[in-house]
Nucleic acid binder design. Structure first.
Ligand SMILES: [Mn+2]
Ligand SMILES: [Mn+2]
Ligand SMILES: [Zn+2]
Ligand SMILES: [Zn+2]
Lengths: 119, 119
DNA sequence: TTGTTTTTGCAACCCGGTTGCATTGTGTAT
DNA sequence: ATACACAATGCAACCGGGTTGCAAAAACAA
């Protein structure tokens, strides 16, 4: 199962949700896929994206993606097709916080219309 | 009810979730509060924040907050106390998207430890 | 007072995420 | 080959935030 899920994610150019992955396989159990994704994430094979759609999306980590706070990238969520893209070329910005606040992680999600839906 | 909710939100320096608002009142119905928040949001009295905690937070719009895409601000979510602050001084950055992508909205959430939890 | 509109309360539903537990499968040592 | 230990899977149920339909109550207007 893990091999199948990993292969599926590798051939995507967008991040997939648990439900979407579920739909790609005819007879796969939701909880198995759920735990597979959790395992992948813990082992830094994939990273999760909270695009605000209510469903967490997952994408494979590229070579450059060590998921360090210093090298996080932005994500794009298309409001039409609901697809979520990794903007690996768009690093999250430096943020000047009020005094006393410390940063662990930055989530930058851009919402709009993707190139495929722009016709 | 609306007056009470608005007063509550006005005296906060953080954004509140529906559940948190529910807890502040002893005998208020969840759906009433829910619809109150929706009404406020539609009328641009408050704005919602998706901080990735799973609960949408709400905060009153300040004078400068017209909720235009051009003047959105970042938000800070404390991983310890779970409070979410409006960083009204931190505008969301310009983002250079791949060709063909258009921007509707940008969500920038910084996670870390807030000044109160930093002791 | 009467009729109309808005707000509220209640209950139920939806859906993604999550978990407990028994079953199945895999891998290893004897 | 067998027996055991451990990991992965399937199933069912649960959780919690969000959402909705509908009838009762409250606010408004004629
Ligand atoms: Mn990504
Ligand atoms: Mn805000
Ligand atoms: Zn699209
Ligand atoms: Zn805090």
């Amino acid at each position: 199962m893990r091999e199948l899920v990993l292969d599926l994610l590798l051939e995507q150019n967008v991040a997939l949700s648990l439900s979407e992955i579920e739909d790609k396989f005819d007879q796969a159990d939701r909880s198995t896929l759920y735990r597979t994704l959790k395992t992948f994430e813990e082992n830094k094979v994939i990273h999760s994206v909270d695009d605000g759609s209510g469903m967490i999306k997952y994408a494979v980590c590229k070579d450059t993606c060590s998921c360090n706070p210093s090298e996080l990238h932005a994500h794009f969520h298309c409001v039409k097709c609901k697809k979520t893209y990794c903007l690996t070329d768009v690093p999250v910005p430096e943020v000047n916080l009020p005094h006393g606040f410390s940063i662990d992680y930055v989530n930058l999600v851009v919402k709009g219309v993707c190139v495929n839906c722009r016709k």
